[in-house]
């Protein structure tokens, strides 16, 4: 063995090849089966992708680095179920490019946030967290009241469709209009949003002002959608109740 190595050390391309081989095995063994073992991701029938407005909110969540403080992953631990709700399933983030599971909880987990608070509360909390939670150390985001840029939304949906998210042609062509409509419950387009994305989509003026489409609308719509895209995790917990 030693002798073998003694010779390998003299051949730079030999070392290169050996390093590549040694450093590839683990990754291949752990990553490839995640695509081949069916039970890894069991996509439930009722799973819906994000609406364009929620997707825009997700991009803002990413842009502001909320993931640096908030996880979106309830671990399979009894106390986490107790505090946050049903544990997160792989299927819940099947359409998430990228996933936002997070690695630090400076703030609480947000995987089950949807519906926990009112839109008004989110607006106030984002503009000035300490006005509602005096002990909070979360940054303030007063600039969320600026208008939402919807120019890239159509292309975003189209790009996501290419990597496997089930957005169809009407969803893509109506993306920007749907974003507007979801924040205007009385508008003509509102029904179209429900038709395309399902009836459990919230259509509201999330920032309280239907006349303007703001980043706040998008971010709050996204936050209110967390944990509501499928019933699957709740059903698992309910099953055991019998």
């Amino acid at each position: 063995m030693l002798k073998l190595h003694y010779n390998l050390e003299k051949v730079s391309m030999g070392l290169v090849a050996a390093i590549i081989v040694a450093a590839s095995i683990g990754g291949i063994v752990e990553i490839a089966p995640l695509f081949t073992i069916d039970e890894t991701v069991d996509v439930p029938d009722d799973l819906r992708p994000h609406t364009p407005l929620e997707l825009a909110g997700r991009e803002i969540y990413i842009r502001e680095g909320c993931y640096a403080c908030h996880s979106q992953m309830v671990r399979s631990l009894a106390d986490e179920l107790d505090r946050y709700g049903p544990y997160s399933l792989a299927s819940e983030s099947a359409y998430d490019h990228p996933m936002l599971w997070g690695s630090k909880r400076t703030g609480p987990d947000l995987a089950r946030l949807g519906g926990k608070y009112s839109d008004d509360w989110h607006v106030q909390h984002l503009i000035d967290p300490r006005s509602v939670v005096p002990a909070s150390i979360m940054p303030a985001y007063p600039w969320m009241t600026r208008s939402l840029d919807t120019k890239l939304l159509g292309d975003s949906l189209a790009t996501l469709a290419r990597v496997g998210v089930p957005y169809n042609a009407p969803m893509i062509s109506e993306a920007a209009a749907d974003a507007q409509a979801q924040s205007r419950p009385d508008s003509d387009g509102a029904d179209g949003v429900l038709e395309r994305y399902g009836n459990n989509v919230a259509v509201r003026a999330f920032d309280g002002d239907p006349s303007r489409l703001t980043e706040m609308d998008a971010l709050v719509a996204y936050l209110q959608s967390l944990g509501t895209l499928t019933e699957a995790p709740y059903e698992i917990l309910a099953e055991g109740d019998q």
Binding site: T159, V163, V165
Partner: peptide, 11 residues
């Protein structure tokens, strides 16, 4: 948008 999603993306 990354080509990976969800659990594969996490790994």
């Amino acid at each position: 948008f990354p080509v990976w999603s969800g659990v594969q993306d996490a790994m």
